[in-house]
Design a protein around this nucleic acid. Structure first.
Lengths: 247, 247
DNA sequence: AAGTGGTCTAGACCACCTT
DNA sequence: AGGTGGTCTAGACCACTTT
């Protein structure tokens, strides 16, 4: 009658426990977990069971395994991760590392849209960052970013003067916030006056508009980003695959 | 000195062999593979080794496993697959099953761009299909599709009268062509006269332009598709994740 | 040499589906 | 009841890294 699962594989339990400890920061990025044998002893299961848990975590990008060395928590600046969240290439398909010019940094009250997407309780303080990203020497992306101030204590003080270009790396190092995934919603819109000025295109030029919500290891929204992009020389690349439902 | 791998795990060999037989059509979509024990005996390895190979194939979407039943080759119309290749939702994030109106079907010589992307040897015959896709009752996507005639024998005869809406399902059932993955390149462009007419928008309206190259199980290009989309009421959704490099 | 993860095996038992 | 895949274990050996 009851529809309880009433059964939970040991390796799933171990995986969940490990995930919780990773999210809680037991092993900061760049450090190594205990060995399989140590974890197996600690959890009272066989090594093979721990191995299965760790392999699933590996396939989800939560840990990295190195033969002969051990199992580590990945850091965001590792090559593995950057291009998972930066999907721009030029027309020939070559990726491109962007540079940034910050146009505005300001603390303000979140409006309704920002409050909704970031799942804030009410109209809390957010840090608003506006910057232009440069690809192949061309101003290409006009970006507006909102960060809940509560999650990034004293962030204003960190961002005076030079501003980090690779934000997700900065979030992890300074605030222990790891971006685990992001949802994007892409549309085409006409350039407004600000876009035109910052991107050096005529008003009305078709731009690719991306709304991105980035989530941390607990699936909590930690960043909202609006990007408006000139696609004369670059484009947004995406690969569609069949792979598993459980990934 | 030589950099040969000089080592190849058994389960990888088994996986490659199985992939080859799947691609060759030994087990058509919807049919079941031999059991683990049968495959283990056939390949002269243990059941655990075959299991590991099959589990990797599962995570890549190449097979589906059902406890108590067996291991099957997925069919494209299974719910699992359609929305992997159709990323449109309305502004509230609700997915939408599109309908199609075919505007043009014609055999022609491939131009340089089509030849290049489809990796044709020279300017071979391609079937050109133009259709408008309707979302929520609104003409939303103006689509132009190129198929190499060599891969779709007598396709002209199949497409008179009614035309299949879910093309990839049709490719698999009629031509044994399974779409395994696709690469998309997304830009923003202004609506031309044809777009304006078919999508009922003013000329110059910003459209989302997608070039998609679809590949079969052998990674051979089998379809080139240009979509031009109104994003007033809908958008292209994409999820960015960390997951594994080997997926 | 010692420790790590990676592969491979063999066997036991469980959960699910079909007959 | 018998077959399938799913979980769990224990042990052997291999490949890689570090000491």
């Amino acid at each position: 009658m009851s529809d309880k699962p009433s059964y939970r594989p040991l390796y799933q339990q171990a995986k969940q426990t490990l995930l919780g400890r990773i999210a809680a920061g037991d092993w900061p990025p760049g450090t190594f977990l205990p060995s399989e044998t140590a974890l197996a002893k600690e959890y009272g299961v066989s090594q093979g069971t721990i191995r299965k848990a760790l392999n699933e975590l590996t396939s989800e990008g939560r840990v990295q395994r190195f033969q002969g060395k051990g199992t580590a928590i990945p850091t965001f600046d590792s090559d593995l991760h950057f291009y998972r969240f930066f999907l721009w290439t030029n027309l020939e398909g070559k990726p491109n590392f962007p540079s940034s010019q910050v146009m505005l940094v300001r603390k303000e009250k979140a409006n309704r849209e920002v409050t909704k997407h970031l799942k804030l309780e009410s109209e809390k303080d957010v840090l608003r960052i506006e910057r232009v990203r440069v690809l192949d020497g061309q101003a290409a992306i006009n970006e507006r970013i909102y960060l809940p101030c509560a999650l990034y204590p004293d962030i204003e003080k960190h961002v005076t003067g030079t501003f980090p270009n690779t934000l997700y790396d900065f979030f992890q190092k300074r605030f222990s916030i790891t971006i685990a995934r992001a949802m994007e919603f892409v549309t085409a819109e006409a350039a407004n006056a600000t876009d035109a000025k910052r991107l050096d295109v005529p008003e009305g030029t078709p731009l690719l508009a991306i709304r991105r919500l980035a989530l941390d290891l607990h699936d909590k929204p930690v960043e909202l980003r609006f990007s408006r992009c000139v696609t004369a020389r670059h484009g947004y690349v995406n690969e569609l695959k069949l792979h598993s439902f459980r990934g």
